[in-house]
């Protein structure tokens, strides 16, 4: 995937959220984006999923402009975890299978393990059949985040766009989940936005966005630091 001179301004804003951004993501690359809040990290996710169109510049996938690809078939190749995920009324199982309804039991187990939801389910008497209220009210922010992460990870995709997947987890759990995410997604392209060191450690490349532009770049990661 290649991003060229990408610019985007949200309606009603004067400052562009992304300004002249260039970025290449390789098919098996684990890329982490960091940057202050409001620097345009989440905007990039909205652009990649085709929710909004670039004001200027372009996003290319395998050499074809994203604007020319059928959006539905493109989205089938992408798995996305938004910063504020929504849980729907229904069982935890249904909520996770939303990502990939035909998933096998093994795939479910793998996603639960990678997202750290496994431990959470152990504490619920109903397990996967536990019914959630609208928005998953009875769960803590970290618990909701893990379920939403499981939903994103169960989906087989070419590109994973994960927006702050561990923001609400405690450091110990975060460390675990971060390393599990990377190993679960070995060989897939991952674009993760984060502030957390735990996730940066496993990334092939870390890029910093500041005021909508690429500010700094680090990596590829020092050999030996990842995988362990």
């Amino acid at each position: 995937m290649r991003i060229e001179s990408l610019r985007f301004t949200w309606p009603g804003r004067e400052e562009p959220a992304l300004d002249n951004l260039d970025l290449d993501v390789w098919p098996d690359e684990h890329l982490a984006l960091v940057g202050a809040s409001g620097s345009g990290k989440s905007t990039l996710g909205a652009l990649l999923l085709g929710f909004v169109q670039p004001s200027a510049g372009r996003i290319q996938v395998d050499g074809t402009d994203l604007g020319r690809i059928d959006l539905a078939s493109w989205r089938q190749r992408v798995s996305w975890l938004p910063q504020k995920p929504t849980l729907f009324r229904g069982s935890i199982r249904d909520n996770i299978l939303l990502g990939f309804p035909q998933a096998t039991g093994q795939e479910m187990d793998a996603a639960l393990h990678a997202s750290g939801a496994e431990e959470l389910l152990g504490g619920l008497p109903g397990g996967l059949s536990t019914l959630l209220d609208e928005g998953g009210w009875a769960l803590s922010a970290g618990q909701r985040q893990r379920l939403a992460l499981a939903r994103a990870l169960i989906r087989p995709a070419d590109l994973y766009v994960l927006d702050e997947p561990t923001a609400h987890l405690d450091p110990e759990l975060e460390q675990q989940v971060a390393s599990r995410i990377w190993s679960h997604l070995t060989g897939r392209a991952v674009l993760v936005t984060t502030h957390r060191v735990a996730l940066l450690d496993g990334a092939d490349r870390v890029m910093e966005i500041s005021q909508g532009r690429l500010a700094a770049q680090r990596g590829p990661a020092t050999p030996g630091s990842w995988p362990p």
């Binding site: 989205r75 089938q76 798995s79 729907f88 609208e134």
Partner: peptide
């Protein structure tokens, strides 16, 4: 009404997951 509100709230994910 309940289903409409929920679908609108979760619209980005429903769209992203092809649901």
């Amino acid at each position: 009404q309940a289903a409409t509100v929920e679908s609108i709230q979760g619209a980005p994910e429903l769209v992203a997951y092809g649901q």
